[in-house]
């Protein structure tokens, strides 16, 4: 726990200086790439997948829940928002790229080739949704608060990539 606090402080200091979490170039230890159709049944699948992958880092229950929830939000967004009905089923694809490095920094990149987001900053605001009354507009805020870093890259009519980064388990931060 204390290690984590140190890490968070270090991270915050780093962020204040305007940096991303890239304190030290570190080697990727393991990675996984997978692609699946943007079907809602795959939401649970994506959670199972990230759970098994992150398990290699010996996460706490809390950390595992956090990363599972963040991934679930990102994958759900691809399913709910990225593709409209005019897109042929075959092209409704989600790509997930997971990897972690020597510092136990887990990264998950979730990519769709959908409509893209016109104003990412606005989309990330709490309660902002284009999804009607079943959506809460809390997906991005949850991703943000449950990870150490959230990056959203979106190109209109091309697609969106969400990158989630989180330190897992015991960490050794050499900054």
């Amino acid at each position: 726990m204390s290690i984590k606090t140190t890490a968070m402080t270090a991270k915050l200091k780093f962020k204040e200086k305007g940096g991303d979490i890239k304190m030290k170039k570190s080697r990727v230890v393991n990675s996984l790439k997978i692609q699946f159709p943007a079907k809602s049944a795959n939401e649970a699948f994506s959670r199972a997948l990230i759970s098994s992958f992150a398990a290699q880092l010996d996460p706490t229950v809390e950390e595992l829940c956090d990363i599972k929830t963040a991934v679930s939000e990102a994958v759900t967004n691809c399913i709910v928002h990225a593709y409209d009905d005019s897109v042929p089923e075959k092209k409704k694809i989600i790509k997930m790229h997971c990897f972690y490095d020597e510092n136990n920094l887990l990264s998950v990149k979730i990519t769709d080739n959908g409509r893209g987001i016109e104003d990412v900053k606005k989309a990330m605001e709490p309660l902002y949704t284009t999804g009607g009354e079943d959506r809460s507009g809390m997906g991005f805020p949850i991703m943000q608060s449950f990870t150490d870093e959230l990056k959203v890259k979106s190109v209109l009519y091309k697609g969106t990539t969400v990158t989630l980064k989180k330190y897992i388990g015991k960490t050794n931060y050499d900054i």
């Binding site: 599972k68 929830t69 679930s72 939000e73 759900t76 079943d134 959506r135 809460s136 949850i142």
Partner: peptide, 13 residues
């Protein structure tokens, strides 16, 4: 066992 933001919509609805 698990809930994400979709549960918020459900509960508030």
């Amino acid at each position: 066992a698990f809930m994400d933001s979709s549960g918020l919509g459900l509960v508030l609805g």
